[in-house]
Structure formats: structure tokens, C-alpha cells
Nucleic acid binder design. Structure first.
Length: 876
RNA sequence: GCCGGGAUGGCGAAAUUGGCAGACGCAGCGGACUUAAAAUCCGCAGGGGCCAAAAGCCCUGUGGGGGUUCGAUUCCCCCUCCCGGCACCA
């Protein structure tokens, strides 16, 4: 069996690489970069100083609040977290080095369904499971070296925190901003709970169970009136120039403001009928195009419109058809392509009266009309609306032209191709309103409707009130009571917090687990002293994350959610960093909460976040990391193999932070090599013990202007690098190119090693260069930076050391290579001194052999010189 | 369908204001060191052609087509594909 030999040889070769077999480990100059050793050493030192990253309560420096979105404690960090926190940590460290008073906290969004699901699966209480996960993830964060002020840690599932959720709820209730209503709600059978509208995926499925279609149920729910702030939430988007345009646009569309008019169409009672609403009943229609009302040839109702029930009562054929339309609509919603639904409708046999001309038009029920937008009813104007046109064609309804396009030569107005939907036309066939521009017609016709008492100008929003009730255990109990005598009673402030009971049985069965805890449910009414039932629903966890960042500023306050004065100092958040998946829900709720707190007088800022940065996803092999695809990269494994610095640096290097990052294990190896190169260079060139006086000195002991060419090359590259890295921190944040720049600097240092060994580079200068190199690296690879800082004999704390200053004089090139183009094509290059005149460049270019051969026998008709960049000769 | 973001070597990417396309890194190839390998250090490297080969030279190239310009990855128009968001929104 010959293969035996081979495998033994392999074993030996492999074991030769392990630390145990290294020759004694005492080679006097072991210049290997050992991330684990270095990181263990500094990790220990950092953890022994809890004040290390603490923000100062009173500081002469300017404040800077940098925040990364707090994680849900699922049990382990993933690469997306590492990327998110590496960005934030780099910024925090950079700001410290720029003498800011930095607030950089971290916490846990620790209420939520996964804890309950885990409880059911593993029979572990949610609290225990959650706290265990927090401990694990906190250890991971510390191992990764993130500079958080842990003294401000916020854990949302602790009563110290959620009591303030309850307190805010009482305030919202007092102000009429929290209300209860019975309504159709999204019900996820898998979660056995209600979802906010915003938590339903476009395909009609639950956001946590992407394959489970959301059903509709009627339940009594608590809602927050976010719509009261719809207009301000929209308007203030203009105050957010530091937000990505993308996110602003998404929020604008989400709020979905549209201006129009409500118009009432009375039911026609002159015809024989059976089964309908009260006499005089009317159908309210919302339209943004009241100028087309003379072209309305039918009314279309959503199949779930209340009046449809009246009209269908005693009309089984209609009822059956309507039920079919409801089913079609639901199916389309669940499939997520309501926009593609094949339009169906059914005439009710009844008419409505157009209040503008008294015309009787038929009432239909149609599957493309949604009950939850506007009034659930439209006037159908086939000539001027795409959908109405399709529908009218299909069912052969009348199509009546009432808007003409404006043509340039005033008089001739051609018949437009239908449907004609442009907003800048002119009315015809519109009675007294004919001959007006659309804009004028809208104004006059709305006024007319208001005077006549059958309509009014209205603004509608797509945004809906925020349903916060959840029939779940692991959340903030809603502090309300139901008394037979006194009705709905708020828990008095002094009785807060309403503590979430522990040691209770959790099952997937519907209804709230809290309802099965009699000691929790049955209490005494604070008003009448009689028996009351406690509300058993808990709050949506988005309540927790809507204001948590305020709590960080005053995390241990037990008399208030926070001290307003402290908040005033720290807010708004200077930089918030997180995934774009939170662009709508979390970020719109947070904005709403801030505005509500401002109206309460608790805070003075209108918006919580000054600048927002949304990072791209971390993907692997072109797909999102997921268990089912088996392409998950574990941060623990990366840290164990390559070290925290390498993992962090690679997550910043592989792509610009705002773009998706395709993780490649081979890429991180290159980063590890680079860190080793830095380590070895400093190891070789750091001051020896025999030259201690230079180690502490920050003074140049050499003449900046008299450096040798090779030293000057280093100096130039250094200052170019400082400029590039510093510029990117000012907002562009392309840390991938910052790191490239630092690599280039290190490459220049390596290329200079001959000159260094020949003494052509002054020692003091070289130490100064290494010092700056380490400072440049510090935001991205803190462990190695600290190790080298110490190796360089620096006594000052690294984060207290000032960020290196860029000197434009020193960054300047002495000579420039100017490309010479002939007719836009590169034909040669000339070298000139920096700042050379155009004449000199042209002179040299014309002397250039390649240029001469390319221009021979041709005439130069134009010379374009871009100073310092390029020369283009146009020839014929 | 609408809104937003993309598409650049074998791969991740760079080019910040319209000015040398491919910096930096990965993978690859060659060399040095080594008995050998690993590690390390140095070098080559978009594609094609002329050439035995090299040097050198030429052509071509940033999803496709057109335009503006002395000059376009960058600006304009049209198209294709990918990602994200939204949607009979009246």
C-alpha cells in the first residue's frame, strides 16, 4: 500500500507548521505576524479598562454621536454585523483621533418572536435564551475589538427599559395618539400574531415567514396615529440632506401623499330596487382628477365596500359574483402581483347620480379596486385613465372624451389617442367648466363641489396608522385595563412597569400566552376597585427600537426615559449606520417617535438622525448568505483563522461600504499577508533599545527639505496617503480605496529597503513615517496598530494621538509625466518639472520621437493642454 | 408598469470635476531563497495581431446601439440584463 508513505509525509509537513513544532519559539528575531497572540494581549488590556471608550460627560471638545443599528440577539454575529460595526468603529476611532467627544454605544433589540420560537423548540425560557445569546454576541464583539462604551448598554427586554415604552404609551393615549379599533388585520398563521401593514411583504406573505400568506382577521387592536404626522414626515425629508437619496425617495413613496377631492355620488332611488342602504345613501369617491368628472361613465366599488353588502343582500347571483371577485383579489395580493390582476367586474344593476350634471351612471363592483386605499370607490373615466380604459373596453362601457391635449399652435386640437392621461390638457364637454386648463378646472370644480355640499378638497396618504398590538408573550405588556364598569382604563403611571411574568408556558396556539396567566390578567381597577382584566397583548418590537438611541445618552435614569438636557447635548445622532432593509419601517417609526417626543417637550430636535449611511449586503457566490444555501461565513471562524483585524479590514476592503460585498475567503488571506507585511516592516525598522532618546521624540531631527531622493519618495507617498484617507473620512467613505492607499504606501516602504539599509533614509524620519502609518491604520486594524504603536515606543494612548496632518507641499510631485495624445489617442509621454508652462510641455512633446513620427507630414491645427494632466494635439 | 441602484480583466474592484482605463488585492505565471516545500522577497500579467521568440510596434477594449466633444467608464438619447423598493394608489 504505497500511498501510506505519502500521507505520512503530508502529516509531517502539516505538523511542521504548527506552533508546537517551531524551533523552541525563541528565535531572537521572530518577525512572524501572529494575530492571535497580539489580539489576545490587547483584548485583555482593553477589557481591564471599562472607561476606555467612555464618552465624557463634560467635554471641551465637540460631541460626535456615531451609532450602528442595534442587533437582535439571535445567538451569533454574522458577516453583515461585522461589516456594519467595522464601518462604525473606524469612524468612531477616527473621530476620537480628531479630538471629538465620541459617543459610541451598543445594545440589544431583545424582544421578539425568535425567542419564543426557540422557547418552544428547546424548552428554554425566552429570557434565558435571549440573555445567553447576548452574552455570546457581546463576547464576539469584544473579540472583534469594537470600541463601545458598554456602561451605556441598553437591553430592551429589561423592565428598566420597557417601562418607558409603557410610559410613552400612556402619554400617547393621553394625547389621543393611541387608540383602539376593531379592524381587519394581517394575521400570520405561523406567528399566530398580527403584523403591521408595513410588515407584510409585497407578495402578501409574512416578513418572517416568507412562504406563509397573510390572512385577514377582525380583532380589537391598539394603533398609533402616525398618520397625524404624515405631512410633517414627508415635509421634513427635505431637512435630511445627509440621508441617501434612495432612502428619502423610498420614504416619500411610502407616505404617498396625493392631493385630490372627495366627491359624493348619491344613489339613484328612482328606479325599482331591493336590498340597499338607508335612503339618501351616497358613495364617496376620491379622485385626483376631478377635472375629468364629466367623463365619468360608471362608479366602481371595491368588492369589500360596505355598500356592496347592502346591494347584494337579497341578490344571491350578485353576492356570488362579488365573492368571486374578493377571492381573485386576495389571490392576486398573495401572489404579489395585484398590478397584473386580470380585471373583472359585475354590474350591480343600480345607478348613482353624478352631482355635476345629474347624470345617472351604473354602479359596478370591480376586482381592481382596493378597499384600503382612498374610499374604496372610484369614478371611472375611461377616456383618461389606463385602468378604467381597459375595463370599459372589456365591458363595452361608454368612453367619453372630456380633456384635449394642448397643442402648440393654439387653435387646432387634435383628438388624442385614448386613453389620454396627461395632466396638462384642456376641458371640453364639461358644461360650464369647458375650455379650462386641467389645473384651473380642478380648482373651480372643487370649489363648486364644496359650495354644493357634495365634495371637498382632500389629501390622502398611502401611510396607515401603526398597529402595535401583538398576541405574543415576549414583548412589552401594553399597560391598559378593561373594567366592566369603567371601560378602558390606563394603568396609573405610578404602577409602572407592568412586569412581564416569567416561567410561563409558551405554545404556538393562538391568542396571547399572557391570557393564560390569571395572576397577570385579573387585577383591581384603579378607579372603582372592582375586578378588571389586563390587556394581554404586547407591543410591536419596533416600539423598542423607535427611541432606544435616546436612552443611550442617559441609560440608567430611573425617573424618566432620559434627561432632556443630556439628550439635547448629544442629539441629533451625527452618523447612523445600518442596512438598507430598515430604510422604511424602523427609520420612519423612529422619526415619528422623535416628533411625538418633541411635541411632548421632551426633546428639541425635529429629526433623530443627521446623517444616515446604508451599507450593502454581504453575499457569497452572488447570493445572500443563508442556511438553506449553505453559504454562511462565520465571523468566529474568520477570527480564529485570520484574526479580528484581518476580518474587519477585509470587510472594508472588498467593496465600497455602500455596495454589496461578495465574500471570498481567498481575499481575506491577502489582507492577512498585508498585515504581516506591515508588521515585519515595523519589526525591522522600529527603534532599537539602544536608541531610546529618539523613540519618544516627535521632533524631526532632520531637514525636511534636504531629504535624499529615496526618502523624499517616501515622504511624498506618505502625505499623498494621508490626504486620501482623510478625504474619504469626510463623507465619501470609500474605505476600500483608503486601504489600497495604505497598501501602496507600504509597497513604497518595501521598495525603499535598499536605500534604508544604505543609510539614505534618516532614522528619525523613518520612525516618524512608521508612526503615521500606524495612525492611518488605527481606525481599520486597531489590534495591530496598538501593537506597533507600542513597538515604536510611543507612550501616549493611540486614540489620544492626533490624526496625521497632510502637508500639500510635501505631497507634491517634483516631476510630472504628461501623456501626449494625437487626435485623442495616446502617442507618447513627456516628463516635465511640476508646474511647467504649457510652452515647455509642447516644446518637449514636439521633440518627442513618437510624437514627431505621428505628426510627420501633418498639420497641427489645435493644441489642447490640461495643466498637469495631458496634452492633446489635433492634426490634419 | 413606476421609482432607485448597477453592469469595467479569470475574480473583488479603481479611475473623487469630461483628460493615460484596469490602481490595490485575489487567483495565475516566472524568478530569488530552500535539498525540497511552505513562508517570504522580486518581477510579469485586458484581449488580439505583426514576430520562431523577445524587444518593439499596431489594432482593439468599460453590457449593446447612437449622439455631443479635441477627448466619454464619466454627459445626452434608445435598448438589453441584474439587484432593491413600490404598485390597479384613483
Amino acid at each position: 500500500m504505497p500511498p501510506t508513505d505519502k500521507s505520512e509525509a503530508t502529516d509531517i509537513a502539516q505538523s511542521g507548521r504548527s506552533a508546537a513544532n517551531r524551533p523552541n519559539g525563541d528565535r531572537q528575531s521572530d518577525d512572524r505576524y501572529e494575530a492571535q497572540r497580539i489580539e489576545a494581549k490587547w483584548s485583555q488590556r482593553w477589557q481591564s479598562d471599562p472607561q476606555l471608550y467612555a464618552a465624557e460627560p463634560h467635554s471641551a471638545n465637540k460631541k460626535y454621536y456615531v451609532l450602528e443599528m442595534l442587533p437582535y440577539p439571535s445567538g451569533a454575529l454574522h458577516m453583515g454585523h461585522v461589516r456594519n460595526y467595522s464601518i462604525g468603529d473606524a469612524l468612531a476611532r477616527y473621530m476620537w483621533m480628531n479630538r471629538y467627544n465620541v459617543l459610541h454605544p451598543m445594545g440589544w433589540d431583545s424582544f421578539g418572536l425568535p425567542a419564543e420560537n426557540a422557547a418552544i423548540q428547546n424548552n428554554t425560557p425566552p429570557r434565558q435564551w435571549t440573555l445567553g445569546n447576548i452574552a455570546k454576541m457581546k463576547a464576539q464583539m469584544k473579540r472583534l475589538g469594537f470600541a463601545y462604551d458598554w456602561s451605556r448598554e441598553v437591553t430592551t427586554c429589561f423592565p428598566e427599559y420597557y417601562r418607558w415604552n409603557q410610559w410613552f404609551f400612556l402619554k400617547l393615549y393621553e394625547k389621543g395618539l393611541a387608540y383602539r379599533k376593531k379592524s381587519k388585520v394581517n394575521w400570520c398563521p405561523q406567528c399566530a400574531t398580527v403584523l403591521a401593514n408595513e410588515q407584510v411583504l409585497p407578495n402578501g406573505c409574512c416578513w418572517r415567514h416568507e412562504d406563509t400568506p397573510v390572512e385577514q382577521r377582525e380583532l380589537e387592536q391598539w394603533f398609533l396615529r402616525i398618520t397625524n404626522y404624515a405631512d410633517e414626515l414627508l415635509r421634513d425629508l427635505e431637512k435630511l440632506p445627509g440621508w441617501p437619496e434612495k432612502v428619502v425617495t423610498m420614504q416619500r413613496n411610502w407616505i404617498g401623499r396625493s392631493e385630490g377631492a372627495l366627491v359624493e355620488f348619491k344613489l339613484d332611488y328612482s328606479q325599482p330596487h331591493h336590498g340597499f342602504g338607508p335612503a339618501g345613501a351616497s358613495i364617496k369617491v376620491f379622485t385626483t382628477r376631478i377635472d375629468t368628472i364629466y367623463g365619468a361613465t360608471s362608479i366602481q366599488l371595491a368588492p369589500e365596500h360596505p355598500i356592496v353588502n347592502d346591494l347584494a343582500a337579497g341578490n344571491p347571483a350578485l353576492r356570488a359574483k362579488v365573492d368571486q371577485l374578493i377571492a381573485e383579489q386576495r389571490r392576486a395580493k398573495e401572489k404579489g402581483d395585484i398590478g397584473e390582476i386580470e380585471k373583472h367586474g359585475v354590474p350591480t344593476g343600480r345607478n348613482a347620480i353624478n352631482p355635476f350634471n345629474g347624470e345617472k351612471i351604473p354602479i359596478w363592483v370591480a376586482n381592481y379596486i382596493l378597499m384600503d386605499y382612498g374610499t374604496g370607490a372610484i369614478m371611472s373615466v375611461p377616456a383618461h385613465d389606463d385602468r378604467d380604459y381597459d375595463f370599459a373596453k372589456k365591458y363595452k362601457l361608454e368612453i367619453r372624451l372630456v380633456i384635449l391635449p394642448l397643442t402648440e399652435g393654439e387653435e387646432t386640437m387634435a383628438e388624442p389617442v385614448l386613453p389620454f392621461t396627461a395632466h396638462d390638457g384642456m376641458t371640453i364637454n364639461s358644461g360650464p367648466f369647458s375650455g379650462l386648463s386641467s389645473a384651473e378646472a380642478i380648482k373651480k370644480m372643487t370649489e363648486h363641489a364644496e359650495k354644493g355640499g357634495f365634495g371637498k378638497a382632500t389629501v390622502t396618504y398611502r401611510l396607515k396608522d401603526w398597529g402595535i398590538s401583538r398576541q405574543r408573550y415576549w414583548g412589552t405588556p401594553i399597560p391598559m385595563l378593561y373594567c366592566e364598569k369603567d371601560g378602558i382604563v390606563a394603568v396609573p403611571e405610578k404602577d409602572l412597569p407592568v412586569i412581564l411574568p416569567e416561567n410561563i408556558e409558551i405554545t404556538l396556539a393562538g391568542g396571547s400566552p399572557l391570557g393564560r396567566v390569571p395572576a397577570f390578567v385579573n387585577v383591581t381597577c384603579p378607579k372603582c376597585g372592582g375586578p378588571v382584566r389586563r390587556e394581554t397583548d404586547t407591543m410591536d418590537t419596533f416600539v423598542d427600537s423607535s427611541w432606544y438611541f435616546y436612552r443611550y445618552t442617559d441609560a440608567h435614569n430611573d425617573r424618566a426615559p432620559f434627561d432632556s438636557k443630556i439628550v439635547q447635548y448629544w442629539f441629533p445622532i451625527d452618523q447612523y449606520i445600518g442596512g438598507v432593509e430598515h430604510a422604511i419601517l424602523h427609520l420612519i417609526y423612529s422619526r415619528f417617535w422623535t416628533k411625538f417626543m418633541r411635541d411632548m417637550g421632551l426633546v428639541s430636535n425635529d429629526e433623530p438622525v443627521e446623517r444616515l449611511f446604508t451599507q450593502g449586503m454581504v453575499i457569497k457566490d452572488g447570493a445572500k448568505m443563508s442556511k438553506s444555501l449553505g453559504n454562511i461565513v462565520s465571523p468566529d471562524e474568520m477570527v480564529a483563522r485570520y484574526g479580528a483585524d484581518a476580518a474587519r479590514l477585509y470587510s472594508l476592503f472588498a467593496a465600497p461600504p455602500d455596495r454589496d460585498l461578495d465574500w471570498q475567503d481567498s481575499g481575506i488571506e491577502g489582507i492577512q499577508r498585508f498585515l504581516g507585511r506591515v508588521y515585519r516592516f515595523v519589526f525591522r525598522n522600529a527603534p532599537r533599545n539602544s536608541e531610546p532618546e529618539k523613540t519618544a521624540s516627535v521632533e524631526y531631527t532632520f531637514d525636511k527639505k534636504e531629504l535624499s531622493p529615496s526618502a523624499r519618495a517616501i515622504q511624498r507617498k506618505l502625505h499623498q496617503t494621508i490626504r486620501r484617507v482623510t478625504d474619504d473620512f469626510q463623507g465619501r467613505w470609500h474605505f476600500n480605496t483608503c486601504i489600497s492607499a495604505i497598501m501602496e504606501l507600504v509597497n513604497v516602504l518595501y521598495a525603499s529597503e535598499d536605500a534604508i539599509s544604505q543609510g539614505a533614509v534618516p532614522r528619525a524620519f523613518l520612525i516618524e513615517v512608521q508612526r503615521d502609518l500606524v495612525l492611518l491604520l488605527a481606525p481599520f486594524a486597531p489590534y495591530l496598530a496598538h501593537e506597533l504603536w507600542e513597538m515604536l515606543g510611543q507612550k501616549e494612548a493611540l486614540l489620544k494621538a492626533p490624526w496625521p496632518k497632510f502637508d500639500p507641499e510635501l505631497a507634491k510631485e517634483e516631476e510630472l509625466e504628461i501623456p501626449v495624445q494625437i487626435n485623442g489617442k495616446l502617442r507618447g509621454k513627456v516628463v516635465v518639472p511640476a508646474g511647467a508652462t504649457e510652452e515647455l510641455v509642447i516644446e518637449r512633446a514636439l521633440a518627442n520621437e513618437k510624437v514627431r513620427s505621428a505628426t510627420a507630414s501633418k498639420q497641427i491645427i489645435k493644441k489642447i493642454y490640461v495643466p498637469g494632466k495631458l496634452l492633446n494635439l489635433v492634426v490634419k
